[in-house]
């Protein structure tokens, strides 16, 4: 048991470092393709974080939807556009960047105040044992098609609108 928890800690530390490192690389690389590939790495590490949080279905969904579909779309669009000027522009110092970084760090400490606050709220019935017994996919499907059915149908309408919008926008004259 202790070995299992130690292994969980090791995986957590490695993967959270991967997530943060990938994010830092995304905002600091000049070439947008490198940004996109580091973002794929960050998303894969996020998927492993979901795995050690007992949600294998969500982890698979993260790899399929984010690292697969969305990042493929972004890389495709980067290759479609000509972004040379972004590449040769020096990452030079400016007061905008300094101000943005300082504001972001201040905001981070504000968020940390929320993170370290004591956690209140009702505890549900879906413990790790229940997930191990029933399977996370079964639990998610039961909730999705009963309590969240209306939102599920509405989100399908949203996706349809997005598809139609994308086609109409890129159709041109």
């Amino acid at each position: 048991m202790v070995v299992g928890i130690l292994f969980k800690w090791c995986v957590f530390l490695a993967m959270s470092m991967g997530v943060i490192f990938g994010g830092l690389m995304v905002i600091s690389r000049r070439n947008p393709i490198h940004c996109a590939l580091f973002m794929v790495m960050s998303f894969f590490c996020t998927a492993v974080l979901y795995l050690i949080m007992n949600q294998p279905f969500i982890a698979v969904l993260q790899v399929l939807v984010y690292s697969g579909a969305i990042m493929m779309l972004i890389i495709f669009v980067i290759m479609l556009l000509r972004l040379e000027e972004e590449k040769i522009a020096k990452l030079k110092f400016s007061y905008t960047k300094l101000t943005g970084t300082i504001l972001g760090i201040i905001f981070f400490f504000q968020l940390l105040m929320g993170v370290i606050a004591p956690l209140i709220g009702k505890t549900g019935k879906i413990t790790a044992e229940v997930i191990a017994k029933e399977g996370s996919t079964v639990i998610i499907a039961k909730e999705l098609f009963t309590r969240y059915l209306l939102i599920f149908e509405l989100s399908s309408v949203l996706l349809l609108v997005a598809i139609i919008g994308a086609v109409v926008l890129s159709k041109g004259k």
Binding site: S16, V19, I20, G23, L24, V26, I27, S42, L49, T96, K97, T99, G100, T101, L103, G104, I105, F107, F108, L111, L112, G114, V115
Partner: peptide
Amino acid sequence: TVGAGLFIIGVIGALI
């Protein structure tokens, strides 16, 4: 904390 860190990295990136 990891989630907050990733969110802040996104905020800083969108600003700079």
